[in-house]
């Protein structure tokens, strides 16, 4: 009783129209893009609809696309899984670089709590409605969001490491 990708697409387009778009299959997983403001309703529909039944949140993470225009700088990716038909799906949603805000989905999936905190920790994406949006992996005193591309990977406070001994020159780092 496999779940057909076309069926998923039709169901979602019927319910949400243009708010869901760019349906495609990448690396063997069906992918779609969803509008940021309606993300909670879309995921709730996918979770609660009797045929779709994507009831398990496998992963939630952020991506920074520095090349994109400002309105699509950040992306939040939701990986959902339907255990009954063993179907996986990826939902991507793009948000702006100047005001990276997105509604929290902790009301739908309890497991999103720590994953949203992690995404906030590394990308500074604000999940509105999250019960406790504080850093989870990095130290509390940190001021940067380290996986944003504008922050250098190296510890800026280092004093005893000479770049030449680490194979780094201005051109290759």
């Amino acid at each position: 009783m496999a779940l057909d990708t076309l069926e998923i697409q039709n169901k979602l387009q019927e319910a949400f129209g243009q708010k869901v778009n760019h349906f495609r299959t990448e690396y063997g997983v069906f992918v779609l893009e969803a509008e940021a403001n309606s993300i909670v309703e879309i995921l709730q529909f996918m979770k609660e609809d009797k045929t779709l039944n994507f009831h398990f949140l496998t992963d939630l993470c952020g991506v920074h696309y520095p090349e994109n225009e400002n309105s699509e700088q950040f992306c939040v990716v939701y990986h959902l899984h339907n255990w009954f038909t063993n179907t996986r799906i990826r939902v991507k949603t793009f948000i702006s670089g100047t005001q990276p805000e997105l509604p929290s989905i902790t009301s739908l999936f309890e497991s999103a709590n720590w994953m949203e905190r992690e995404t906030y920790d590394f990308y500074g994406i604000i999940f509105t409605g999250h019960p406790n949006l504080v850093r989870i992996l990095n130290m509390d005193e940190m001021v940067s969001f380290p996986l944003r591309k504008e922050f250098p990977m190296e510890d800026s406070g280092r004093t005893d490491k000479d770049d030449r001994f680490f194979g780094r020159t201005i051109n290759n780092c």
Partner: peptide
């Protein structure tokens, strides 16, 4: 002793 190969934002450099 020095942070080793982990020359990165999250690791204490020694």
């Amino acid at each position: 002793s020095s942070g080793g190969i982990f020359d990165t934002y999250s690791v204490l450099q020694g």
